Simulated scan of single mutants.
Amino acid sequence: MPDRPSILIPVRVLEGESIPEGVPELLTNAHVVLLGYHVVPDQTATDQARYQFEDQATRRLNDFTAILEHAGATVESQLVFTHDGQTTIDRVTDEHDCLAVLIPNATRPIENVLVAVRGIVGVDRFVRLVSGLFATLDVNITLYHVAEEDETDADVETLLDGVATRLSDEGLSSDAIDIQISREGTPQEMIVDVSDSYDAIVMGESDPSVSTFLFGMTANQVAKQFLGPVFVIQHGELDDAEETDNE
């Protein structure tokens, strides 16, 4: 069985965010890095916020941990009071070598997963994530690519067939893997257009900052319109960034 993939779930722990319905079952085979964070105004010291809210935040984080562990995931949690939520998410993702960040929208039981493959960059992470999460489950995987003008069908089929072979080698049934190619529109538009038939999306982001996807326009186009969980695979190394979190 493939190793458990490490998935970061960021939760604004004091702002009413929680673990939505269906997400714990989606992460049965995952190692979850549960990041509970609270963004503190610049004029407020993080130590002061921690002193005031740590007990409340810790209780909520413990509740979420118990829910995920009951579903089968292994969990390590971290509570951060910070002035910069995006930088915190990037840093914790890097520190724990997480394969992806999960935008944890609610989901129904997982039957069909759309895996949007952009190119050869990050394919190792795609294979590790998809095989780790779904190799032991009865799930259909669609490998999806929006082709550029200079890409031939043969080139794209070679790319996706290679990914499918690697997934099969890692334990997924070849009968459960499908390939789909589109040629119109932007990748984000096309992913949203075809997503109605799927219960979860796995996709990458060329920008090395996962949080750019998480909080930017791409997230609005995909996660908000799709309304289901989206795994955002990180490509490459994060830039070193200074931050003043109190942990």
Rank of each mutant, 00 (worst) to 15 (best):
L8M: 08
D97G: 06
V139R: 11
D94L: 02
R60Y: 09
F213K: 07
L99W: 02
S173W: 00
L227S: 13
N246C: 15
G236R: 10
D124R: 13
D196H: 08
I177H: 03
V92L: 04
L61H: 08
F81A: 10
A73P: 10
I89S: 03
V75H: 06
D245L: 06
V115C: 14
E237L: 14
Q78G: 08
T158G: 09
S131G: 12
F134L: 06
E237A: 15
N112T: 05
L102G: 01
N112P: 00
A49P: 03
S211T: 10
V40M: 06
H235C: 00
R59A: 12
D55C: 02
A135S: 14
I7Y: 03
L35A: 03
D42I: 11
R118I: 02
T93M: 07
H96I: 00
H96A: 10
A219H: 12
V146D: 01
N29D: 11
E243G: 09
Q86L: 11
R91W: 01
T165R: 07
V113C: 10
K224V: 12
G122S: 05
V33T: 13
V130W: 01
H70L: 09
D207K: 05
D175E: 13
E95D: 08
M1R: 11
I19N: 03
D175G: 03
A116M: 00
P5A: 04
F64A: 12
I141E: 03
G132W: 13
V115K: 01
E157Y: 13
V39S: 11
E189A: 11
I67S: 10
I177R: 04
R91F: 00
D94T: 04
R50F: 09
L214T: 05
A164W: 08
T44I: 15
H83F: 05
T46G: 11
D207W: 01
E95F: 00
Q48W: 15
I103D: 08
S174E: 11
T142D: 13
E69L: 05
D155I: 09
H83K: 12
D94M: 04
F213P: 03
I177D: 01
H83L: 06
G72E: 04
M190D: 13
A219K: 06
V75C: 06
L238Y: 09
V75A: 08
T88Y: 06
S209M: 02
M217S: 13
A57D: 02
C98R: 01
G236P: 05
D90N: 15
V232N: 14
V230K: 05
Q52S: 15
A116T: 00
V92H: 07
T212V: 09
R125T: 07
D161Y: 13
E205M: 07
V230S: 09
D155T: 13
D175F: 09
E15R: 13
V115T: 10
A73T: 12
D240A: 14
L102W: 00
P208C: 01
R12A: 12
P187E: 02
E149L: 12
K224T: 12
N62H: 14
D47N: 14
Q180V: 04
V121H: 13
T165N: 11
D90H: 07
H96P: 03
L34E: 05
A45Y: 14
T93A: 11
T44S: 10
